[in-house]
Amino acid sequence: MTSLQLVVRVKDQPDMTSLKAPIAETYTDIRLVADLRGFKLRVSALRRLARANASSLRELTLPAGIGDCQLEALLEPLEALGRLYVSPPVDSTGEWLRLLPKSLKTLEITADQQITRRNWRTSTVSNCTRKTIRSGMTRSPVSFYEYFYSKLSVGVQLATDKLLDQLSVLSNRQPDYQVTHLVILESPSVTPGALARLLASFTSLKWVKLGVVGATLETTLAALHGCSGLEVLYLTDPRPLTDIPALTESEVAAVSRMAVTCRKLEELCLTSSAVNCQAVLTALLKTYLGRTIGLYVPTES
């Protein structure tokens, strides 16, 4: 075998306190995939695990609410990690983001939010998410395309303004390791200002999916003007199509300006009402783009 992957699910071994991958033989790539839900998350144990597997730990899934000290102790020694699935606590400082290894290709974050019984029924969070919060486990990962030119893909669910502001530190990574793919889903508490600040900081974006209310606001779309390499943009309103209000003239115009400014944009996917999709299409047809853009809309419209 030229590639061997060892998958360890610690939840099946609740008494496990340490983990070490086999020693790789010649021409064999030993990849360690660790699901640490159920692992005894002592800082000392995590540090020993990380040091013992610094060159072989490739994928890591952590339980909801893991503290900053635990995260930092685990991440600092790692040098080959490719995927990280994590749910940082509400009071996280975000300092752990500075310790992400250069090898990281996929970062999946589900914010650790508390939803009370009073606002449970009125929340826009899906039933799948509710089950996840009840169980206290990390959600299923965000699914998005991983193109060959992807440097770092970031997927965020149940985001808060605080978390988005913390993520902007990733813009300080070296050019070869910056964020090129971004997905933000099911985040009803995120404000347009925080979303715009994050998008403005990620100037290397090529593939973006925004599944939040306010994705078509002028401030949001204007923040994408600095993404000269943007190729694919999903504007996905999470509300039912019948509940989505009509876009204002300024919002429709903002879509056109973004399409003109982002000269490499090839695909625009708009999940909205039939009236809104038609308005955007009409505006794009009246705008001189100098190229062809594929506009994708829901089949219901």
Rank of each mutant, 00 (worst) to 15 (best):
V8D: 03
V8E: 06
V8K: 05
V8Q: 03
R9F: 12
V10C: 13
Q13K: 13
D15S: 10
K20H: 15
T26Y: 10
T26H: 11
Y27G: 09
Y27M: 10
T28F: 14
T28R: 15
K40W: 10
A54F: 05
S55L: 08
S55K: 12
R58Y: 12
L62A: 03
D68M: 06
C69S: 14
L74I: 08
L75A: 01
P77V: 07
L78E: 03
L81A: 08
Y85I: 08
Y85G: 11
V86F: 02
V90W: 11
D91T: 15
D91L: 10
D91M: 07
D91K: 14
S92A: 10
L97P: 01
L97F: 09
R98A: 10
L99D: 08
L100K: 03
K102I: 10
K105V: 00
T106H: 02
I109M: 02
I109L: 14
R117N: 13
R118H: 14
N119F: 11
W120D: 12
T122H: 10
S123T: 15
T124D: 12
R130I: 07
T132E: 02
I133T: 11
R134E: 14
M137G: 12
R139K: 13
R139H: 10
S143I: 05
F144V: 01
F144L: 04
Y145L: 13
Y147D: 02
S150M: 05
S150I: 01
K151H: 12
L152E: 02
Q157C: 12
A159F: 05
A159V: 11
S168C: 13
V169K: 05
V169H: 04
S171A: 12
R173Y: 09
L182Y: 00
S187A: 04
P188H: 00
S189N: 13
V190L: 10
A194I: 04
R197H: 13
R197E: 07
A200L: 06
F202W: 08
S204W: 04
W207T: 00
G211P: 00
G211C: 07
V212E: 00
V212M: 00
G214E: 01
A215N: 15
A222T: 15
L224Q: 03
L224P: 04
H225I: 05
E231W: 00
L235W: 08
T236D: 05
T236A: 06
L247F: 13
T248L: 06
E249A: 15
S250E: 15
E251W: 01
V252Q: 09
A253N: 12
A254K: 02
A254H: 07
V255Q: 03
V260P: 07
T261M: 10
C269Y: 03
T271S: 09
S273T: 10
V275G: 09
C277G: 08
C277I: 09
A279G: 13
V280D: 00
T282L: 13
L285H: 14
Y288G: 15
Y288P: 11
G290S: 06
G290R: 08
I293R: 03
G294R: 12
G294Q: 14
G294F: 09
Y296C: 14
P298D: 10
P298G: 08
E300G: 01
